[in-house]
Design a protein around this nucleic acid. Structure first.
Lengths: 150, 150
DNA sequence: CCTTGACCTCAAGTCAACTTGAACTTGCAC
DNA sequence: GTGCAAGTTCAAGTTGACTTGAGGTCAAGG
């Protein structure tokens, strides 16, 4: 059981390319010690950190946001229960919201199959207020994109 | 109730910037008729099409994939029930998978709070087989990224 | 007629998140 | 001690999804 991981090892275990790991370091998401010969040696907790980063990306967080969240975790010691709880709590609403959006979309698509939505008037995917032009933007049945699909 | 929408109107109703709409046209996602003065005039169903495109992006589909899916819909007439059903069926697993991933992540974070995961050995975010180096990549508790966070 | 705002095209720029390549160095197995 | 896979830096390139800007056109009101 090695205490330090080379970049290749961390890459293999995390499934993240070495170039990406170097990039993560560059933007301050992870850090590494160096051997006398200037090679990176990662501490074991880095593995967990990288896994967390990947997970967070899934939720739709940018690396910047992830960095911000991770900065609330202590750099010097393993995070305490409280540290984790704080982080988890801050991401939780985001995850829930994302799930909800997806469920809504799924239901909408389902509904479309059965609803005879071919008549544009009743389709859930269609804006109910579409004829009421001028009363605010219509057809925006989705929440504002929030810069995600960028 | 107008039969044709100018790009500005479509933009306002769909919440998608004109430049984006032109881009969508460039990559073949939508199309428009032209006035004698060369201005775009969109047919009403385009509104629904654009909404669908945005939804699909949420699920994590690229514009290429969306174009592919939309190509299975008829260009000439409004999609039939069967057309919709086909499209919905093809996206459904994707949506479900995404939801499942998010739920797993949420549960993992929750678990981490209560599980005393500070001992690296038991944390769900940590790879259970991490000590078994060489037996395949460890710590890949997440599904292969599938090129999404790119 | 003239202005004004919405529209047009086309080329170039941007941004995140990496990847690739060149040119060079380390570390370990034989 | 030598070979070579695996590591290093740094600059530049890539991809997706747009946005911005320059330079010009069109349509309606005053």
């Amino acid at each position: 059981m090695v205490a330090h991981l080379s970049i290749g090892e961390l890459s293999a275990r995390s499934g993240v390319a070495p170039s990406a790991l170097r990039y993560y370091e560059e933007v301050g998401l992870i850090s590494a010690e160096r051997t006398s010969g200037n090679q990176r040696r990662y501490l074991r907790p880095t593995l967990r950190r990288v896994a967390l980063i990947r997970s967070a990306q899934r939720v739709g967080l940018t690396l910047d946001e992830i960095a911000e969240a991770l900065d609330t975790l202590p750099r010097d010691h393993a995070p305490t229960k409280a540290d984790w709880a704080r982080l988890s709590r801050s991401w939780r609403p985001r995850i829930d919201a994302q799930i909800e959006r997806l469920e809504r979309l799924r239901d909408k698509l389902d509904g479309c199959i059965g609803c005879g939505c071919l008549s544009l008037k009743t389709c859930a995917l269609n804006n109910p207020h579409d004829e009421v032009a001028g009363r605010g933007p219509g057809a925006v049945f989705l929440e504002p994109t929030g810069r995600r699909p960028r």
